[in-house]
Design a protein around this nucleic acid. Structure first.
Length: 109
DNA sequence: GGGTTGACTGTTC
DNA sequence: TGAACAGCCAACC
């Protein structure tokens, strides 16, 4: 892992998220070792624009709610992307988030 | 180098 | 049950 900084590390983890799956900021932060930096993960995602390899739409908050959908340019882009991958979204929230939840510590560990 | 911000999380009122 | 407050770390100005 050439994790130069936190951003690069976050991108690397998000990039490992399989299609049709989603994870939470806290999980990524915890995997990185600093579970208290969940907000930083969101910040990293804010800078992920221009990185097609970073599926930010697969990263949601602990409730599975698309908190960052507003940052996708269109408030429905995030939901559409998830639905295209087979993830059902209802009221800006991922349906059966527990099923589609992808734990980095469980796959990358 | 110091202060502010942030797509969060957990606890408390 | 629902909403509000505090905490933490790292990047940006």
């Amino acid at each position: 892992m050439e994790s130069k900084n936190f951003f690069d590390d976050v991108y690397d983890v998000v990039r490992q998220i399989p299609e049709g799956r989603a994870t939470s900021y806290g999980s990524i932060a915890t995997f990185l070792g600093t579970k208290l930096t969940a907000r930083m993960v969101g910040w990293a995602m804010n800078a992920c624009h221009g990185m097609p390899d970073v599926p930010a739409h697969r990263v949601v908050n602990r409730d599975g709610m698309l908190t960052g959908k507003h940052f996708f340019g269109t408030p429905t882009a995030m939901q559409e992307l998830l639905e295209q991958e087979g993830v059902k979204v209802k009221n800006d929230k991922i349906v059966d988030f527990k099923k589609v939840f992808w734990n980095p510590s469980d796959e990358l560990l």
